[in-house]
Design a protein around this nucleic acid. Sequence first.
DNA 1: TTGTAAGCGTTATCAA
DNA 2: TTGATAACGCTTACAA
Lengths: 340, 340
Amino acid sequence: MHRPAPTLMDVARRAGVSTATVSRCLNSPDRVIEATRSKVLEAVRDLGYSPNFGARVMVARRTHTIGAIIPTMENAIFARGLQAFQEELRESGYTLLVASSSYRAEVEEEQIRSLVARGADGLLLIGHDRDPAIYRFLETQGIPVLVAWAFDRAAPLVSVGFDNRKAMQALAENVIGLGHREIGLISAPVKSNDRARERVEGIRAAAQAAGLPDSSLHLVETDYGIETGAEAFAQLMGRDVRPTVVMCGNDVLAVGAIKQARDMGLDVPGDISVTGFDDIELASVVCPALTTVHVPHRAMGRRSAMQLVQMVEGTTPGQPLELATSIRMRASLGAPRPDA
Amino acid sequence: MHRPAPTLMDVARRAGVSTATVSRCLNSPDRVIEATRSKVLEAVRDLGYSPNFGARVMVARRTHTIGAIIPTMENAIFARGLQAFQEELRESGYTLLVASSSYRAEVEEEQIRSLVARGADGLLLIGHDRDPAIYRFLETQGIPVLVAWAFDRAAPLVSVGFDNRKAMQALAENVIGLGHREIGLISAPVKSNDRARERVEGIRAAAQAAGLPDSSLHLVETDYGIETGAEAFAQLMGRDVRPTVVMCGNDVLAVGAIKQARDMGLDVPGDISVTGFDDIELASVVCPALTTVHVPHRAMGRRSAMQLVQMVEGTTPGQPLELATSIRMRASLGAPRPDA
DNA sequence: TTGTAAGCGTTATCAA
DNA sequence: TTGATAACGCTTACAA
């Protein structure tokens, strides 16, 4: 545990050559004669040599590493997209380093600095909402940054994602079209979370367009989780005016809502409709299956990786890419009871 | 994008001091007087300076980085434990780097080398099954390695986890106790996956102990996924002897099985019982709720982090820790039909 | 309290 | 084809 790792020098000594030759064997094997090469490679194996990354980076100025900071790993949404992101990166010869911020802005900032310090060649961030100071920092560091899971052509950073507002608005229009007039909303905290905020705004926009008064929207904010979704649902059901539908900011909250409805003996969608956002596996497994907005997570991950690699390699300045979402109509959404 | 990042030298020049002083300001601020310090810190801010990790590591020989390689990110099981792992690490001042191997041994090996090269102070691996050569490599590198999600006191590496075999055996005993005599098994591929293998063996052990012939076990191996679980289930149902229960190697496969049962018009557990392993959120959400083995993922993550930090800091040589699992009896498991 | 200078382990440029 | 040797950006004795 405390034995120092072998260095290039150790290998060179053992093989009876110079460090330069060892380095060449490893990096451009054809520039070295066969006999020397095999001698060196043998020494490498014997010693279990592995090049020191720090030293290598210091001289090469490139780490072939991409950093990603996501709000949480404990979340199928990011996990799936990230897996695709990493697969694509790997194919381009890059390694992915992941950190999670637990949805806390100050932790995210710390992680950004940490990944930059570690020499990440590029960064993937989720959403646009953050302290401008951090953008200035990234600017001076000259590190390409891509935003995913959101799309905003006007934002300071290039994004590959979808329009959260538009997507949720489309779903809300459907909901209102079915005749719902009192709409419950369960949202993740909107502070420093543009995705959550935009989704709520999408619903507002749809309501306004349909001529519904502001009072017909009943909002509860809560942390991400099945349990918290259930609690928020119970809270909504306890209010004076009961909504006929509960639209949730994501599938996990929605599943919590459905669970709570079951526990309260309410029929979904007979007594109350529920919708989600993301279309993770949970959505099609829960009973009744969840009506939700389908997000092309894997495509977003892959495209983000391609885009970011291009930015890092200087081929392009970074092009915003908007992906389409679609609505998955499933059993959890129905028309409100006529007598309600 | 191509502007070189500011160096310690740049900061020193701007603040009109030596590089040593700048370094001291950053690392031991009390060894420098207030006036100088503020001058330096101002220059740091102006320039958006961030220390070069490579250079720093080269001299400090410590990265305060822990690497983890998991089979996949797209999986609530690892995600939850890993989130806890990272939270605990953060509290101890370590950064987590995650890589995923897509369940491929050769990719895992590549990732191990990559993380080692990046100067990870310690490594977290999943399960014990891998090429001995890689253990030799880790040995020569002198890097502490901890195995999680499995427990085996006899294995070459210290593990923090649970006994997959014992856990599954306990569940199987329950199943057999209910009267099941023909048991379907859906397992992840057991090649280089000791967890999967041990779970199957647990069932075998229980069957043998109950005097069931080997022929009463009907095994299908398939990749991880809801869809693949569904296909495997359909395959089992198509065989000459229909099992009365299908035990799955994990919850995701089990949910696929339940889904397929529904699609085939089979009642669970009336016509066929289904069990899982892991107790992820999916398990309690699916209808009917899934009987499964509860694994203390978060605790495992936290304890692994604590253990690994201790190993890295040389406080202890690493102590194996076995965590207890328990059985969650839910609606998906019942007694077989008497007439079956 | 601050500055000077010697490494840390690589890679790359020259010469040999 | 190979070997010296000078960077790379930082920390840390040691000197001042």
